[in-house]
Every structure is written in C-alpha cells, then in structure tokens.
C-alpha cells in the first residue's frame, strides 16, 4: 500500500506553498497514493548502471556572449504586478529572518 500519508501530503503542500484544508489533504492522500503505486513501477524497470537521461537531445556548451541586451523599463517590469510602490514590487511582510 502507498506511503502517501496525510502528514506527508501536508509537508509536501507546505514545500510547494499551497494551502490545503484537512479535507483536501485526505483526498489528495488517496489520489496520490493510487498514482504513486502506479508510477512506482519505474523502480522495477532499471537495474544496474543505466545512465540517466535528463535531456533528450545531447548538447553541451551553449553560451551567450557577455553583452548587454535591452531590458524592460521599470514601468513595463511593474506593469503586471499585483502591487508596487517606489519602483519596486510590494509584498506583505516576511515571516522569518533568513
């Protein structure tokens, strides 16, 4: 049976910064449990040294030269911000120091 407990869902949701109600936690635990049981078959597919593929078409060393390209104006940058002041994005106070 699945290892997706309600506590784990709560923890994952907090890592992902998504507020979840207790009811959602229960529901997600159930749904994710089924999905995880199904996708966990990948662990059986591979044995020994198979290289991991993180990029479908192997490429390397793609660089841009160190030159300045046009930036947005301050007005453009802030144009879709929910809130801004003094040329900066405005957000609620931050919880903890770090």
């Amino acid at each position: 049976m699945s290892e997706i407990t309600p506590d784990l869902v709560r923890h994952l949701a907090s890592l992902a910064r998504i507020l979840v109600t207790d009811q959602e936690v229960e529901q997600l635990a159930g749904e994710l449990g089924v999905i995880v049981d199904s996708v966990a078959t990948v662990t059986k597919a591979v044995s020994g040294d198979v290289a991991a593929t993180s990029h479908p078409i192997p490429m390397a060393n793609v660089y841009r030269e160190d030159v300045i390209l046009p930036s947005l104006t301050q007005l453009q940058a802030l144009s879709s911000a929910p809130d801004s002041t003094d040329g900066r994005f405005k957000v609620n106070a931050i919880l903890d120091e770090d």
Partner: peptide
Amino acid sequence: CGCANNFGSEPNTNVC
C-alpha cells in the same frame, strides 16, 4: 540574461 550587471541603478531597470 543580457541585463546590465550594474550596482546602483534605479530599481527594476536592469530586468527582463
């Protein structure tokens, strides 16, 4: 990105 790496510019002007 190609934004200027500048200290002391007006806020949010070296952004893309």
